[in-house]
Deep mutational scan, measured.
Amino acid sequence: MTEYKLVVVGAGGVGKSALTIQLIQNHFVDEYDPTIEDSYRKQVVIDGETCLLDILDTAGQEEYSAMRDQYMRTGEGFLCVFAINNTKSFEDIHHYREQIKRVKDSEDVPMVLVGNKCDLPSRTVDTKQAQDLARSYGIPFIETSAKTRQGVDDAFYTLVREIRKHKEKMSKDGKKKKKKSKTKCVIM
């Protein structure tokens, strides 16, 4: 069974824990209790493949930012979460993405942009803004509501699919490099 290491990042209060708990335990946590770091595991079937999701729910508070490099190193894919009623959390996505790329030393890291709290009427981040940002990053965008469960499975499952595509691409690139290195030079 394939294991996928997913990391949920975003500013404090955007609903990272609520999304994760909704996926794992099928219930909505409405009281806000700032996370330092929590880890969850769940076995699911995605596109006919049974897999184990190892999900790291991270601290959004700035005082825990020193811990970010460590979990970013171990993560295979990242859910970059903002709240649709919090423009600052949307603007912060850029910083999370840049930090992930720096730590992973790669421009090509599996990510999904997630606009959470889409059940709320007080939207300050337009869907088109988020779609445009995701398009500019070359990553999928999904709106979710941890409260109603809308888009929750889709967000995590899409990230797994992005990781699969990335692994497939990397193995193809690896095979191309191996083929090239088999060419021999004969000096007579």
Results as ranks from 00 to 15, higher is better:
50 T>C: 07
188 M>V: 07
109 V>R: 01
163 I>R: 01
2 T>D: 10
47 D>A: 05
37 E>D: 11
136 S>W: 07
73 R>M: 07
60 G>F: 02
74 T>I: 10
75 G>P: 07
106 S>N: 12
30 D>M: 05
96 Y>D: 01
71 Y>G: 12
47 D>G: 07
175 K>I: 03
101 K>V: 02
18 A>G: 11
167 K>G: 07
16 K>H: 01
34 P>E: 12
18 A>V: 03
97 R>S: 10
156 F>S: 02
87 T>C: 12
97 R>K: 05
156 F>I: 15
188 M>N: 15
58 T>N: 08
173 D>A: 05
38 D>I: 02
59 A>S: 13
52 L>H: 15
81 V>Q: 02
123 R>C: 14
27 H>G: 13
155 A>P: 08
32 Y>G: 12
55 I>Q: 07
21 I>M: 14
127 T>I: 12
24 I>P: 13
16 K>Y: 00
16 K>E: 03
184 K>A: 14
139 I>Y: 03
104 K>W: 10
155 A>W: 01
52 L>K: 12
57 D>L: 11
106 S>Y: 10
34 P>K: 03
131 Q>Y: 14
87 T>Q: 14
135 R>W: 03
22 Q>H: 07
102 R>K: 02
55 I>A: 08
90 F>A: 03
167 K>Q: 10
169 K>L: 11
154 D>E: 14
10 G>Q: 00
78 F>V: 11
28 F>G: 12
46 I>C: 08
146 A>M: 05
111 M>G: 01
18 A>I: 03
24 I>C: 09
12 G>M: 04
53 L>P: 03
91 E>V: 07
94 H>L: 12
121 P>D: 13
96 Y>Q: 02
173 D>E: 14
43 Q>K: 13
187 I>H: 15
13 G>T: 09
56 L>Y: 13
86 N>L: 01
35 T>W: 11
129 Q>R: 12
76 E>A: 13
106 S>K: 04
112 V>C: 01
75 G>V: 15
41 R>Y: 07
8 V>M: 03
39 S>H: 12
134 A>E: 01
94 H>D: 14
115 G>K: 02
118 C>N: 06
56 L>M: 10
175 K>N: 14
4 Y>Q: 10
147 K>W: 13
169 K>Y: 02
100 I>F: 05
102 R>Q: 04
50 T>I: 05
172 K>P: 13
146 A>V: 09
136 S>L: 06
119 D>E: 10
34 P>F: 08
67 M>D: 15
142 I>T: 11
24 I>E: 14
73 R>G: 12
38 D>K: 03
142 I>H: 03
141 F>L: 09
7 V>E: 04
42 K>W: 03
8 V>L: 07
123 R>F: 09
54 D>R: 12
50 T>H: 08
64 Y>A: 15
107 E>H: 12
74 T>P: 05
11 A>W: 03
136 S>N: 13
18 A>Q: 06
71 Y>W: 07
90 F>P: 12
140 P>L: 06
97 R>D: 01
184 K>L: 01
183 T>V: 03
55 I>K: 04
30 D>F: 06
105 D>Y: 02
155 A>R: 00
66 A>T: 09
8 V>H: 00
25 Q>W: 02
131 Q>D: 11
152 V>H: 05
137 Y>Q: 10
82 F>V: 09
17 S>M: 00
68 R>A: 12
43 Q>D: 09
175 K>L: 13
104 K>D: 01
121 P>W: 05
45 V>M: 06
45 V>R: 08
97 R>N: 04
44 V>Y: 05
115 G>I: 10
34 P>G: 07
133 L>S: 06
61 Q>W: 05
91 E>F: 03
90 F>C: 05
87 T>F: 04
125 V>P: 09
76 E>K: 07
73 R>V: 05
41 R>N: 08
135 R>N: 12
40 Y>P: 09
129 Q>M: 12
120 L>Q: 12
13 G>I: 11
95 H>E: 06
62 E>A: 07
7 V>R: 12
173 D>I: 03
158 T>R: 07
172 K>H: 14
88 K>P: 02
175 K>C: 13
185 C>D: 15
128 K>A: 14
97 R>G: 03
114 V>L: 08
42 K>L: 08
118 C>I: 08
5 K>M: 00
116 N>F: 00
121 P>T: 12
103 V>R: 03
161 R>A: 06
116 N>R: 00
